[in-house]
């Protein structure tokens, strides 16, 4: 969800950087533990070609895959206590995002397709402002890319995107209707799935 605070916070400073890159999916490590935009948010990275992607998952885990995290909160009053008692967690844990590439911008022109060259590792990543998101969502061709991604929970990602991002625009009903119609075209033979998405979007 892009709220005012985040809007002020994210565009100015990067939320993280690309640590795994491909044409279809990116992994972004957040610079600060737990400080990531919500699932379904649109983020961007790259300088000449700006690549847009939608957050499909947020993971916080041990940086060292051989070290497992263990329960620490037995005697703590709150999770904040645990982090205060164990400041090393800030360095040992990291929050990373999986994103699905949905388009790119070249010379002010936005394309809803996979960029021909993926972003670089360590490319700084920014959260898109509401304005940028709406600019990107003038048409909904990118929903095709989202839908065809092999993510089992892609429907939830789509719902989050539509509900939180478009839902916060000035004229949500018009945008949501158009987005819904695009989805309906994409899911013309799976109305069950379509209905489930739409019902949740309209809540």
């Amino acid at each position: 969800m892009i709220n005012k605070n985040q809007e002020e916070k994210y565009p100015k400073s990067p939320i993280g950087e690309v640590i795994e890159t491909s044409a279809f999916n990116l992994t972004i490590q957040c610079h600060k533990l737990y400080e990531s935009p919500a699932i379904g948010s649109l983020i961007k990275c790259g300088t000449e070609t700006i690549v847009y992607s939608v957050i499909s998952n947020i993971k916080t885990q041990s940086l060292d895959t051989t070290r497992t995290t263990i329960a620490l909160a037995q005697n703590a009053f709150s999770v904040e206590d645990v982090y205060q008692e164990n400041p090393q967690l800030q360095n040992l844990l990291s929050t990373s995002l999986n994103t699905i590439v949905v388009g790119y911008k070249q010379n002010t022109h936005i394309n809803h397709e996979i960029p021909s060259i993926p972003p670089k590792i360590h490319d700084l990543t920014y959260c898109c402002t509401l304005e940028e998101t709406l600019e990107f969502s003038q048409t909904f061709g990118f929903l095709r890319i989202l839908r065809s991604s092999n993510n089992a929970h892609i429907d939830d990602v789509i719902v989050s995107f539509l509900r939180s991002t478009l839902g916060n625009s000035k004229n949500p009903s018009q945008l949501l209707l158009r987005a819904g119609q695009e989805l309906a075209r994409l899911l013309k033979d799976d109305t069950q799935r379509l209905t489930q998405i739409l019902e949740r979007v309209s809540l």
Partner: peptide, 9 residues
């Protein structure tokens, strides 16, 4: 909303 979206698509 569901009906609105589906009608026509």
């Amino acid at each position: 909303f569901v009906k609105e979206v589906m009608s026509g698509t």
